[in-house]
């Protein structure tokens, strides 16, 4: 059986080996979460269950808290002084990721992230992909070569860059850079990939390619995508959560959200009347 390492700190003794669970079972359980930036509350009582190997989209107008929630899932908000999860828990496979025993490094290895602004490092394409692996101490050349090819193929970028793996990642086009960032994220074999408006800086053709890529990745990874673009959410997600003013207004199957929203605000937003 393939046992993946757990993300709890090795010293805590709470380390639970994680076994793959069936598609559709709850992977991330966001349970009554309140979140604060200093004194201002950004998230109010969020309840959400993200399912294994599905694409979950977070939509909503700017400032509604969707990115904040996304960045709670791999604790990237820890980088900002004065932020805190005041109430509630975020559990991944039953483990509260804000528990003091959790090693945030292990968590981030398991929960990868792709950012709004593509951020390839000013290194070669090869070094970009192997960055995360080298952090884990993997330095075997043939091992790294294999992961580079696998990750680039996984990100549908291999054919475009296979002849220039050692040239700078910054020499790629915007869409290629974003796919390089996705390749870099999947190289460390996370379970979850968080995508924070991955297409907002891309042209329509590059956007289509990333969306196609998401469709391929869904078979292997659990994907949470924040998007401004409702069509994008409609096209590529299984479940959609609509946020407004820091509250989760509605969470349901994507088809239901767009065809038959239960909430009047959701309907107003998805039909383009505000936002």
């Amino acid at each position: 059986m393939d046992i993946k390492p757990s993300f709890t700190s090795p010293t805590s003794g709470r380390s639970i080996p994680v076994t793959p669970s069936p598609v559709g079972s709850t992977l991330i359980d966001i349970d009554h979460v309140d979140f604060f930036y200093g004194a201002s509350q950004a998230l109010h009582d969020i309840n959400l269950k993200i399912e294994e190997k599905k694409v979950t989209a977070f939509i909503g107008p700017s400032g509604c808290g969707k990115s904040t929630l996304l960045r709670c899932l791999n604790r990237m908000n820890d980088l900002i002084d004065g932020t805190r999860v005041a109430n509630g828990q975020i559990k991944i496979r039953g483990i509260d990721i804000y528990d003091p025993s959790v090693d945030v490094i292990e968590l981030r290895k398991r929960v990868g992230m792709v950012f709004q602004k593509s951020n390839p490092f000013p290194k070669s394409i090869y070094e970009n992909i192997t960055y995360g692996l080298r952090l884990q101490g993997r330095s075997n050349k043939s091992d790294l070569d294999a992961v580079v090819e696998k990750s680039l193929r996984g990100a549908a970028l291999w054919d475009e860059v296979k002849d220039r793996l050692h040239s700078s990642g910054l020499g790629l086009s915007g869409g290629q850079q974003q796919r390089l960032c996705i390749a870099r994220a999947i190289a460390v074999e996370p379970e979850v990939i968080l995508m924070d408006e991955p297409c907002s800086a891309l042209d329509p053709i590059a956007t289509v390619k990333v969306e196609e890529l998401i469709q391929e990745l869904r078979t292997k990874f659990t994907i949470v995508i924040v998007t401004h673009n409702m069509q994008q959410a409609a096209r590529c997600s299984d479940k959609t959560a609509f946020f407004y003013m820091g509250k989760l207004i509605e969470f349901a199957d994507t088809r239901a959200i767009f065809m038959n929203p239960a909430n009047a605000q959701t309907e107003a937003y998805v039909s383009g009347r505000f936002g």
Binding site: N74, E106, R108, M113, F121, Y131, G132, L135, A185, V188
Partner: peptide, 19 residues
């Protein structure tokens, strides 16, 4: 973005700064 990208790959703060 370079710092965030590195941290999101599971780097420690010092690894991020050094590399």
């Amino acid at each position: 973005g370079f710092r965030e990208g590195s941290l999101a790959l599971g780097a420690t703060k010092w690894q991020t700064i050094r590399k």
